[in-house]
Computed example of a mutant assay.
Amino acid sequence: MEKVRIGIIGAGLRSGIAKYWHDPDGKSVVVGAADVSMERLKEFQKKINEDAYITTDYQELLARKDIDAIAVLSPDHLHEEHAMASLQAGKHVYCEKPLAITVEGCDRIMETAKKTGKHLMVGFNMRYMSMYQTMKGIIDSGVIGDLKAVWVRHFVGFGGYFYYHDWHGNSKNTTSLLLQKGSHDLDVIHWITGKYTKKVSAFGGLDYFGGSQPNTLTCPTCDIKDTCPEASLHTLTQCAFREEIDVEDNNMVIMELEGGIKASYLQCHFTPDYQRNYTFIGTKGRVENNDQEGKVYVRTRKSNSWHEHSDVTYDMKQEKGSHGGADPKITNDFVELVLNNKQPLTTPFAGRMSVAVGCAATESIRSGGKVIDVSPGPSMTYV
Rank of each mutant, 00 (worst) to 15 (best):
V247C: 02
N289M: 08
F241M: 14
K198V: 06
E256L: 08
F209Y: 15
D223N: 12
M252H: 04
D185P: 01
D273Q: 13
H168N: 09
I254L: 11
E243N: 13
L217E: 13
T175K: 07
G285T: 09
L186K: 00
H234K: 12
K284S: 11
E258C: 03
T216P: 00
Y164D: 03
Y265I: 10
E256Y: 07
F241A: 10
T237D: 08
G210V: 04
G169I: 05
W191L: 01
N215A: 11
D249Y: 02
T237E: 12
L236P: 00
F209V: 10
L236K: 15
Y196H: 02
L233S: 11
S171M: 12
T279L: 14
T279W: 10
G204L: 03
F280G: 04
G157D: 10
G194C: 00
Q238C: 10
I254P: 00
G160V: 08
I192W: 01
V200T: 12
T279Y: 14
G157M: 09
A240V: 15
T283G: 11
K199W: 02
C219K: 04
G204P: 00
I281K: 03
H168K: 11
D226E: 15
I281E: 15
V200F: 02
V287L: 07
T221E: 12
T235E: 14
T175W: 12
G205I: 02
E230N: 10
I192V: 04
K262S: 07
N289Y: 13
N215L: 04
V156L: 09
N215Y: 06
G169N: 08
L266M: 15
F280K: 05
E244S: 14
G159S: 07
T193H: 00
C239R: 15
H269N: 14
G211Q: 09
N251S: 13
H165D: 06
N250Q: 11
W167I: 10
R276T: 10
I261H: 05
R242F: 04
L179S: 04
D185V: 12
N170K: 14
E258V: 05
L217I: 05
Y196T: 08
L206N: 03
A231C: 13
A263K: 06
F203Y: 06
G211K: 11
G182D: 01
Y278K: 07
F209S: 06
D249C: 03
W167Y: 14
Q180W: 08
S183C: 14
Q267T: 15
D226G: 03
F162I: 08
W191H: 01
G282P: 01
Y163W: 13
T174S: 06
E256S: 06
F270L: 06
K195S: 01
Y164M: 08
E288R: 09
V188G: 00
F270K: 11
C219R: 02
C228W: 03
T216F: 12
G157H: 12
S171V: 13
F270A: 10
K198H: 00
G211A: 11
N173G: 09
K181I: 13
M252G: 01
D207S: 13
L236V: 05
S232E: 06
I261Y: 06
S212Y: 15
T235P: 00
K172R: 14
L179Y: 03
S232W: 09
D273G: 09
Y196G: 02
Y208H: 10
I254K: 11
I281N: 02
A202G: 01
T175I: 11
I281T: 11
T235M: 11
H165Q: 12
Y161I: 08
F162R: 15
L186R: 00
G260H: 07
D223E: 14
G157L: 07
P272C: 08
F209C: 05
H269G: 05
